[in-house]
């Protein structure tokens, strides 16, 4: 798995899973529709990505659909890195 996927996956696990939660998640696990990340707590993920990669993601692009899997998030981040 490439670096960005791993970094985001690690953040998601640290930020959203409880210590005793043994839910297995990978880059294609549905985070929001799967009930792991609620749309309200998604804000911290957006903030993490912006800080980590030095990008600005407009609120309109930070939809629950786009943030639903790590794979989707990587596509989004790369799009903004290319801008």
């Amino acid at each position: 798995m490439d670096d960005m996927k791993q970094v985001i996956l690690d953040y998601v696990k640290r930020e959203y899973l409880e210590e005793d939660d043994d839910t297995e998640i990978d880059e294609s696990t549905p985070l929001i529709t799967g009930g792991i990340v609620d749309s309200f707590s998604m804000v911290s993920l957006k903030r993490f990505l912006e800080k980590k990669y030095g990008i600005q993601i407009p609120d309109a692009d930070a939809s629950p659909q786009v943030f639903d899997t790590v794979n989707n998030i990587v596509v989004l981040v790369n799009r903004y890195l290319e801008k």
């Binding site: 409880e18 309200f40 707590s41 804000v43 911290s44 903030r47």
Partner: peptide
Amino acid sequence: IVDGMRLCNAMRDTFKH
């Protein structure tokens, strides 16, 4: 509270329970 926070334009963040 979630609804009240949504109506406010301050930044929102959360911490684990």
